[in-house]
Structures are given as structure tokens and as C-alpha cells.
Design a protein around this nucleic acid. Structure first.
Lengths: 230, 230
DNA sequence: GTCTATAACGAGATAGAC
DNA sequence: GTCTATCTCGTTATAGAC
């Protein structure tokens, strides 16, 4: 059987991939705000109306690129975690942070797409949430492991924050104390502050040896979530 | 003498301000990538070529907006510092962090302009550096005061980072120990990670009581730069 | 001198008829 | 899927008002 459906499906997948690849190129050159289905079609030698067989709208193409970017970053962080699976939690934390940084430096435009300025007129649908959560889940897992080990020491909680801290812990990691949940979310945001500043050029003439600086900052972030060097 | 120069200069200043105001409106609606001199001129009932008397190019208009945004944020942080000038350094640090957050939430599009994704095809000239540095200088000043007080305790340095740390300290704050300079730059980037995540929507369904969360995180950042509660 | 207006260029996007 | 007519844009040259 010369499975015509299989061949068709394969062709469809290949064209879909080619469209996304061309769109990513355009993302790098013109930015997400100017992503245009017509320009993508032109680059592929297709006519713009043909693209609507693969993506019903420009926003759907954008959504696909966003999900791909989140997944790519998620996979990079998961690979780093697995490669360091025998190391103690603090070292694993640092390895994942460095994977995030490495991915962002290798894919600055996709980084800008998911962690940079929102695209005017575009609102990400719920379908992106799953992929977006992957990095965060990796970080949560490491802190959970660390908590089973030597324990989270020195994490405190500001007075008024307790109800919110308990809500966050219940949502994110019911097995972690509220202090750890708060520290985790803060460290998560701070990690992307470090990475974003480097990718977007804010460290220009401020930090030169960015690799060493980041390694140090990531280690201190690990302490901040209660992963004490061991 | 009915100072014709004064009147002309005033008129020029008013039109310049009107152009920037209209440009900021467009920034909010279409994003920096699509900022167009023609649309600004249309909104003001002018013809596009007339704008070139005030801004030699679209990029120069963008640069003016960027400098204004940095200055606006810088002033907000300086005001917060001055309003808390009698408070101990840790409280002053938190006040400035909250001013940064408040400014960003009140001006999300200008925040995106200066701390979000780079504008494709645009490269900020050196003239922006002075304004961009203002917030950082406020933070440095507070840590310097704290250092004169109870002292920076518990700041360590990763092995390979020492040369870079000494370079950073010499550049940013020769009177501070290298450990403090590194912690300061890291806290600076992390502060904008927290603010950026909130402004750009990454805390959606993760952090609800963002005010309390931020206050807590800012307090822990203060500890991270060696400002111990007192 | 200082400004605005007209017109135009080359490039690109877009909408709709066919 | 193709073609065309009509938009947008940044920018410049030029002419004329105050």
C-alpha cells in the first residue's frame, strides 16, 4: 500500500515546518509586530492565500511560533536537568539556569517573542500555557528535591504575604512550604531578569565577563530558594 | 523688546512636546516597531515633512522617546529616594524598588520601549546612556549608605569572578568592595526581572497579590546587596 | 532665518477584480 | 493563483509664507 494519506500528512508537516522556519527568519529581521503572512508566502514562493490552509490567521502562526519557542526552551532546560541528574540540587539548579541563558543567547529573537514586549494587538491564547510552564516546572522539581535533602533554611515570609504564599504553594507545589513557593517564583522572575538584561543589551559596558557573572548570580539564586551548597 | 526669539523658542518647545506626546500615544497602540512619522504628523494636522524641522529622522524621534522614558523613571526613583531620605537604607531600597514598579505599571509601553525587546533596525546611540544610568545610580547610592552603616555582611564571591568583580567595582562604585558591586548589578537586573514579569503578564495566574509579593521580593533583594534590616 | 506645504522617489503592503 | 490599482512608509528637493 502506497499510503497516500501518509504521504499527504508528511507533505503537510514539511510545509508547515517550512512556513514556521521562514516566519522565524522574518521574526529575526523585522520583529513580531511586523510578521506578515504575505512576506512569509513570498519567501516560500507561495501565494498568501495558500498559507491559510496551514494557519487560519497571522495570530495563529504567531501562537505556533510562541509555543515552539517555549517548548524549545523547556526541552533545553529539561535536558540540562537530566544531564545533571546525579549532581546535588544546587548544582542542578545552576545547570538549568545556564541552559536557560544558553538557549536565550542562541535564540534571542525567540526569547524576545516569549519574554519580551507583548506584541501589540495580539493576546496569547490558553494553548500556550502548557509549553510556557515547562521551565518553571523544572525549577520546581529541583527545589522539591533539595527540600527532601538538607532542607530549606533561612526562608522567611513578610507579614501580609502569608495568605498569598499559601495560595501559591497550593497551586504550584503543595508539598513545599509557602516560603519556598514564594522564593521560587521570585527566583524564577529574577533569573529571567538576568537573562533578559544580557540578551537585550542592558549589560553593555556594565558586565564584561557575563559567563562568570551569571554563574555567580545563579548560585546565589539557588541559595535564595533554600538550596544550600552541599 | 518683545523677545521674538523667546516666543519662537517657546513655540518650538510646545510643538516638540506635542510631537512626542502623539508619538507616545502611537507607541501604546501600535508598538515601537510601527512608530511612523507620517501617522504622528497626521494626528497633529501637520504634513510629514514639517516634522523634520523637529526631529531629523524617525530614529531620532525614537531616541527622544527613549531618553524621556529613562528620565521619567529616573526621576520617579530619585523622588522615592528623597522622600525616604530619613529612613534606614533597607527601607529606602524598598521604596525605590516600589517606585520603579509603580512607574512601570503606570507606563507599560514606555517600560517596554526601554526594557523590552529591542526595536528591529534601531540601535540606541550613546546619548541614551546618561538617562539610562539614573535608576542604577540611585540604587548604588543606597547601598553605599548602607555600607557606611552596619556593613555588608555575608557577601561572597565565586572563584573565577574576582577580576571581573574588581573591574565592575572600579567602574561603578570604587568605594564599595567588589562583592557589593557584583551583588548590586545582579539585584538591579533581578529587580527588572520582577517588574518585567508583572508588566508583561508572566505572573498571570501565578501571582495574585502582586503588591505584597513584590514588597517581599524587594526586601529580600535588599538583603542580597548586604542591606540588613535595622 | 524659521517654518510649513507641495510634490515626488522608491519601496513595500493591501484589497479586490478577474 | 494572478494582476492591478491604491494605499502606506521614510525621506528629500523645492517653493513660498512669516
Amino acid at each position: 500500500m502506497s499510503t497516500p494519506q501518509g504521504a499527504r500528512a508528511r507533505a503537510r508537516q514539511e510545509i508547515t515546518a517550512a512556513i514556521k522556519e521562514a516566519a522565524r527568519r522574518q521574526l529575526a529581521e523585522e520583529g513580531a509586530a511586523k510578521l506578515s503572512l504575505r512576506a512569509v508566502a513570498r519567501e516560500l514562493g507561495m501565494v498568501s492565500s495558500a498559507l491559510y490552509r496551514y494557519f487560519p490567521s497571522r495570530d495563529d502562526l504567531l501562537t505556533a511560533l510562541i509555543i515552539d519557542a517555549y517548548d524549545s526552551l523547556g526541552e533545553a532546560s529539561e535536558r540540562a536537568r537530566d544531564a545533571a541528574s546525579t549532581a546535588p540540587p544546587p548544582a542542578r539548579w545552576i545547570a538549568v539556569c545556564e541552559a536557560v541563558r544558553g538557549w536565550a543567547l542562541a535564540h534571542p529573537h525567540e526569547y524576545a517573542l516569549i519574554y519580551g514586549s507583548p506584541v501589540p494587538g495580539y493576546s496569547a491564547p490558553e494553548t500556550t500555557v502548557r509549553a510556557a510552564a515547562r521551565v518553571g516546572l523544572v525549577l520546581i522539581g529541583i527545589v522539591r528535591d533539595g527540600h527532601r535533602g538538607p532542607g530549606l533554611a533561612g526562608l522567611s515570609l513578610t507579614a501580609g504575604l502569608r495568605p498569598e504564599a499559601e495560595r501559591m504553594a497550593a497551586d504550584l507545589a503543595p508539598d513545599l512550604p509557602p516560603e519556598a513557593a514564594v522564593a521560587l517564583v521570585a527566583a524564577w522572575a529574577q533569573l529571567f531578569g538576568l537573562v533578559g538584561f544580557e540578551v537585550f543589551g542592558q549589560f553593555h559596558r556594565v558586565v564584561e565577563d557575563r559567563e562568570a557573572f551569571f554563574r555567580h548570580a545563579a548560585a546565589r539564586l539557588a541559595e535564595g530558594v533554600g538550596l544550600n551548597g552541599s
